[in-house]
Design a protein around this nucleic acid. Structure first.
Length: 424
RNA sequence: GGAGAGGUGGCUGAGUGGCCGAAAGCGGCGGUCUUGAAAACCGUUGACCCGCAAGGGUCCGGGGGUUCGAAUCCCCCCCUCUCCGCCA
């Protein structure tokens, strides 16, 4: 959520900035509601002050044994009027809130302006895409040959966009997860968390998935829970309704969780393989920091995700998402795109975002700034460190050999207890 | 699932209709004392909203009701704890 003051005092400018990311702000509607809100709120508060004063006087009069009936009649009428006003006020406020919850974050000035992923800005590349002296296969063919990846089997259980992994491939998936968790906790200073995979609608609203992206969530009807689309949701919400002391910041969390996405609206996109699934695992990194630290932290966080790919020896590039491609709550996002020989292109494997105070405002996540002498919103950041399923794909495709077997990246060989996977 | 107890400020915990945004203690902050520290003593210490400000308003788990007036009375919901049953 944006600072409400922006919609009150700097509406036109805010609308212009939002237009850059392709969002049309209902400025007229907001201006009208604000004006009415101010009028009704002022009157409400005046009447409340009157009621408080006169009720108090009435208490005193009664104690003094005076006749209070005339006073009572006047106050009763005032109470009725007040009730109407309060109803009207809360209606206006609810509508303003509803609008505000649907407004995306403002982007940082360093974010390139654009309309699609074609306008994203490449920042750097790491590693050379491998040259094959044979025709490389994609992970579907490789996995099927090894009998370790099965979409049909999963289809029988749950339908499309699910997969089963077995034997060495399942183990490779686990080894990747373990490797990432160890790296981030040992080398990068994160605190490992185990968190709920089901969360309340309030939590999902706090991190920005609701109300706008309800269609993309899996919802448990019976109890009004949502399956988390990413561990960003529970990890960031750890700061919900808190006022953290200065010495408690920064907080950095890592968690390995499954992620659930309905992928509504992506029909026909990435239907082959396990690039886009209803369920996938991810190791997620979340920072809660002082506002002045958030952009430095974004670079650090991105570096932590990059380290995973570097140690795995996977070529990748870093792009800054443009205003047309960036996510709802982010002010700035770096995507890490790993090279996939099966597709001969770079594909997203991590997304690292600074949400500034956008989520913090929704979550009421604050800290005690000693310089301000009052609570101030924190900044929150999140990044995949990295998507496990996609890392699995990248390893399989990049480390394939002519005979269809897979070399095990060095950093995983101990965990895998082998150097080559030649069958599941 | 059954029975009971309870949700008040950073924490513990008083408060059963107006004098309560709320006692007291702890913790925090400032000071006195001290070579320094501790102890002791004194003072101070919630969040949010509107407003340039002065000031006003809201908040005692959430929602609704009674009343001139609700932390306090009534109703619904949520959560926590204890015991029993079941169970990974």
């Amino acid at each position: 959520m944006l600072d409400p003051a922006l919609l009150r005092k700097d509406l036109a400018n805010t609308a212009t900035r939002l237009a850059r990311r392709g969002f049309v702000l209902e400025a007229d509607r907001i201006a009208a509601l604000e004006e009415e809100r101010r009028r009704v709120q002022t009157e409400t508060q005046e009447l409340q002050a009157q009621r408080n004063a006169r009720s108090k006087a009435m208490g005193a009069a009664r104690a003094a044994g005076e006749d209070i009936e005339p006073l009572r009649a006047g106050l009763s009428a005032l109470g009725d009027r007040l009730k109407d006003l309060q109803e009207s006020l809360s209606g206006i406020q609810a509508e303003l809130r509803e609008i505000s919850l649907g407004v995306p974050n403002l982007t940082h000035e360093s974010v390139p302006v654009g309309t699609s992923e074609d306008d994203n800005r490449e920042e750097r590349r790491w590693g050379e895409p491998r040259r094959f002296d044979f025709e490389p296969l994609d992970h579907v063919d490789l996995g099927t040959r090894l009998a370790g990846v099965d979409f049909e089997l999963a289809g029988k259980l749950a339908g499309s966009r699910f997969v089963t992994l077995s034997g060495s491939i399942a183990r490779l998936h686990r080894a990747l997860t373990q490797f990432m968790l160890e790296l981030h906790t040992r080398e990068h200073g994160y605190t490992e968390m185990y968190v709920p995979y089901l969360v309340s609608p309030e939590t999902l609203t706090g991190t920005g998935q609701l109300p706008k992206f309800r269609e993309e969530q899996f919802h448990i009807e019976k109890q009004d829970y949502y399956l988390i689309p990413t561990a960003e949701v529970p990890l960031t919400a750890l700061a919900q309704d808190r006022i953290l002391e200065a010495h408690e910041l920064p907080q950095r969390y890592v968690a390995h969780t499954p992620c659930f996405r309905s992928e509504a609206g992506s029909y026909g996109k990435d239907v082959r393989g396990m690039l886009r699934q209803h369920q996938f695992d991810k190791v997620e990194l979340v920072h809660v920091v002082r506002p002045q630290d958030s952009y430095r932290t974004l670079e650090e966080l991105t570096g932590h995700a990059e380290k995973v790919l570097q140690l795995l020896g996977l070529p990748y590039r870093v792009v800054t998402l443009c205003t047309g491609d960036i996510g709802f709550g982010a002010a700035k996002t770096y995507d890490l795109e790993v090279w996939l020989p099966g597709q001969q292109r770079y594909r997203e494997i991590s997304s690292c975002s600074n949400c500034e105070d956008f989520q913090a405002r929704r979550l009421k996540a604050r800290w005690r700034n000693p310089e301000l002498g009052r609570p101030e919103l924190v900044h929150t950041l999140n990044g995949s460190g990295v998507a496990v399923g996609r890392a699995l794909i990248a390893v399989i495709e990049n480390y394939q050999r002519a005979d269809g077997s897979i070399d095990v990246p060095e950093v995983l060989q101990d965990a895998m207890e082998r150097e080559v996977i030649d069958r599941a």
